[in-house]
Every structure is written in C-alpha cells, then in structure tokens.
Simulated assay, not measured.
Amino acid sequence: MDRLPTLDTPRLLLRPWRDADRIPFAEQSGDPKVMSFFPGPMTPVESDALADAIQAHFTEHGYGWWAVEVKGGDPFVGYVGIQHCDFAAPFAPAVAIGWRLAAEHWQEGYAHEAAEAVLDFAFDRAGLEEIVAFTVPANLASLGLMERLGMTYDARDDFQHPHLPPEHRLRHHLLYRLSRAAWQARG
C-alpha cells in the first residue's frame, strides 16, 4: 500500500488505509447521525466489507477514498476521495468525489480542505476530465460544499439511485459536475 498516493494539506494527511482505521470506521458507519443520508447504519461486518472495497478500488485505479488524518491529532476522522461510480446512470461512466467524516469533526472545514486536495489530484495527477458529486436534496451541508468547490448543478441531471428501492426516502439524487477546465480556471 506504500506505493499509493498520499495527499498533504495544511491540517490534514489523506493517506491509504491502515488496519487500525477499521475500528473508528465501523463506529462512524454505525452512527445514525453520520449515516443519516445513507441507506442506514452499517454493521461492523458491512463496514469491514466497505473498507475492503475501498482498498480494492485503490489497488485497481491508484486512487479512491483516502483515510483522513488530522496532523498532530486524530489519526482517522473519516474519508474523502474519488471513486468510479459502480452503477448504471445517464451520467456514467463517471468518477465521483465523496466524503464522510465523524460527526465530531463536522464544521471544522476538513471536508473542504481535503476535497480541494483530491480535486487537484484528480485533475492534475490522474488526468481526469470531469468529477461528479451527488446526494439527496435534504443534505444541505454536502450541497453547500459542492457549490463552494465550484461544482455546478443542472436539474436535468437529477436521477433515482439504482441501489435503492423505488419507495426509499433517499432514492432521488441531485448531480453536480466539475470539469478540469473549470477547476483550473478558478480564481
């Protein structure tokens, strides 16, 4: 795993996952507050399976959801990264940026700081042309972060998440986009 990229920001280290990350990740994955805009809290077994999938994505693509560590502080506060969409949608194939941090680390600017580093990596080092992001309309914090990152929304891109049943309260998603040209032209 040492060959996988590590991203450095003023306050954070975005790094490959360690075995020690699995316990705090399982705690976050089981927290109803953290998982309020996901289908539901995960069991420790489900959380471990997701951690395995994250590591497999890194191995296959050279990037993924990095473990976020606070320099001189908490060794694991969650993840921020980019990942290939694993479902059929009108905008796919696509690479999506995503984040999930422990609730005690919300509103500290960590997601924004980490997401900027990830976008620099995506466009400058990975050579991607576009990054998407999506969430449900009620997730105002994530929607605000998408806008602060310079991502744009077009209602024509709204979609029903195929991993959720038709009646699920979180099935309707909004899609935001960011091109490499727009990222590089920011002020």
Rank of each mutant, 00 (worst) to 15 (best):
W17M: 06
I131C: 01
A53R: 10
Y79I: 09
V95G: 14
A115P: 14
D86W: 01
F134Y: 15
F76P: 05
H57S: 07
G62T: 03
P32E: 04
V70A: 02
M35Q: 13
A126L: 03
Y110F: 15
R22V: 15
G72V: 01
S36F: 00
A133I: 03
G40K: 09
E130R: 15
R15D: 05
D52V: 11
H105Y: 15
Y63I: 00
F38M: 15
M35C: 06
L14E: 03
A133D: 04
I131M: 03
G78I: 13
D120M: 07
L119T: 08
P32I: 03
A67V: 08
F76N: 12
D48E: 06
D52I: 01
D124R: 15
I82C: 00
L14S: 11
A102M: 12
A88C: 00
E113F: 13
W99A: 11
H84Y: 09
F58C: 08
V68H: 06
Q28T: 13
H57G: 06
E27V: 13
P39G: 07
I23S: 13
A89E: 07
D8Y: 13
Q28C: 05
H105T: 05
R100D: 05
P93W: 01
Y110E: 03
I54F: 12
L12V: 12
V95D: 11
D52P: 00
W106E: 03
P44F: 04
E130N: 11
D48H: 02
V136D: 04
F91Q: 14
A103F: 10
R100M: 10
A88R: 10
Q83P: 00
E46M: 11
L12H: 13
D124C: 14
A20V: 12
D120L: 10
D52E: 08
L13N: 10
T59V: 00
A103C: 04
V70D: 00
Y63L: 01
L128Y: 14
H84N: 12
L14H: 07
D48C: 00
I82G: 00
R100P: 01
L101M: 13
H112Q: 13
G127H: 08
F91V: 14
P90K: 15
L7C: 08
D48R: 03
G30W: 05
G64S: 07
Y79C: 14
E46Y: 06
C85N: 14
P75V: 10
L14T: 11
A103P: 01
D8G: 02
H61E: 01
I82P: 00
W99N: 07
E108A: 13
E69D: 10
A88G: 07
R11G: 14
H57T: 13
M35H: 06
F87M: 07
G72S: 00
W99V: 02
W66E: 01
L12E: 09
R22D: 15
R125P: 04
E60D: 05
G40F: 10
Q28E: 10
G40H: 12
V118N: 11
F123D: 03
T135R: 09
A67Q: 02
A122F: 10
M42Q: 15
S47D: 01
A49T: 07
H61F: 03
M42I: 02
W17P: 15
V118K: 14
F25K: 05
L14D: 03
A102W: 00
D52W: 02
C85K: 09
P93K: 04
Q55W: 00
A102L: 01
W65V: 07
I97Y: 11
H112A: 14
H105I: 06
E116S: 12
V132I: 15
L119R: 12
G98W: 14
A96V: 14
